[in-house]
């Protein structure tokens, strides 16, 4: 099976490890991964801030970059939601139907929950809002994590509450955003888990930024980073 990876601009520039982990994970599962170089950003930051006109070229570019691929895999719930939920408003209907958020692709298309990963740590999972409410990822990420060898999953109190990132909301309403993030981090700390895991690096940039500011022992990791980790090549 051949898929196109839409790595997203945030992962490309700031979290390449997540992109690399996604490639390794998919290849380990027998999938051939392509990276169409014409891809950049899905347009979500512009669209969510009210810049519809400025979003149009990015929507067109993305749709063109992934033409011809039966499966487009995105390791980001919010970018996948942007394509799925909002691209039709720009007249792009083909790409949304072929777009899968990573955990969706693994569980629904490949039909796997045990991806052969190894991660001997305690983990708590934060289901970011777009994955939770727009895409309806449901139990998929948790099922994948539960099947990881050595991993102990701990329930996150108030898991469904927003972490407060919200794109430009994080800077436009930075006080409220930080207060939400601090509450999220408090909940995560109460689990005593080593790792706070999510499926969206933009949320994790915000949560992780608070963890680092507080010198907290917990670290934020993308689910792809964990699922790519094996006994031969452990991440931590």
């Amino acid at each position: 099976m051949r898929v196109a990876l839409f790595v997203t601009c945030v992962n490309d520039a700031l979290y390449p490890a997540t992109g690399i982990a996604t490639v390794r994970l998919l290849e380990r599962l027998g999938v051939v991964v392509d990276f169409p170089a014409a891809q950049t950003c899905c347009g979500q930051p512009q669209f969510n801030t009210g810049y519809r006109r400025e979003t149009v070229p990015l929507v067109r570019r993305t749709a063109r970059a992934f033409e011809g691929y039966e499966y487009v895999v995105i390791p980001s719930g919010s970018c996948a939601a942007m394509v799925r939920e909002h691209y039709p408003k720009f007249g792009e209907t083909a790409l949304p139907a072929r777009t899968y958020e990573l955990t969706e692709f693994l569980v629904d298309v490949l039909g796997v929950t045990d991806v052969g990963a190894y991660f001997p740590h305690t983990v708590t999972y934060h289901p970011s809002c777009h994955g939770l409410r727009s895409l309806g990822l449901g139990e998929r990420p948790r099922r994948l994590l539960e099947a990881v060898k050595g991993l102990e999953l701990r329930e996150l109190p108030g898991a469904e509450e927003c972490c407060g990132f919200g794109g430009t909301f994080a800077v436009k309403n930075s006080d409220v955003s930080a207060a939400m993030g601090q509450d999220k981090v408090r909940g995560a700390a109460s689990t005593g888990a080593d790792v706070l895991c999510g499926a969206d690096n933009s949320c994790l940039m915000h949560i992780g930024g608070i963890l680092r500011r507080q010198d907290a022992p917990q670290r934020a990791l993308h689910i792809a980073d964990i699922l790519a980790s094996t006994e031969e090549e452990p991440l931590l």
Binding site: A13, I20, A37, A170, S174, G181, Q182, G208, G209
Partner: peptide
């Protein structure tokens, strides 16, 4: 506005690209 309560992400040595 970002750094009052949060660290910025560390820039990686190379992009995914």
């Amino acid at each position: 506005a970002w750094t009052a309560d949060r660290e910025l992400p560390e820039l990686p040595a190379q992009s995914f690209r």
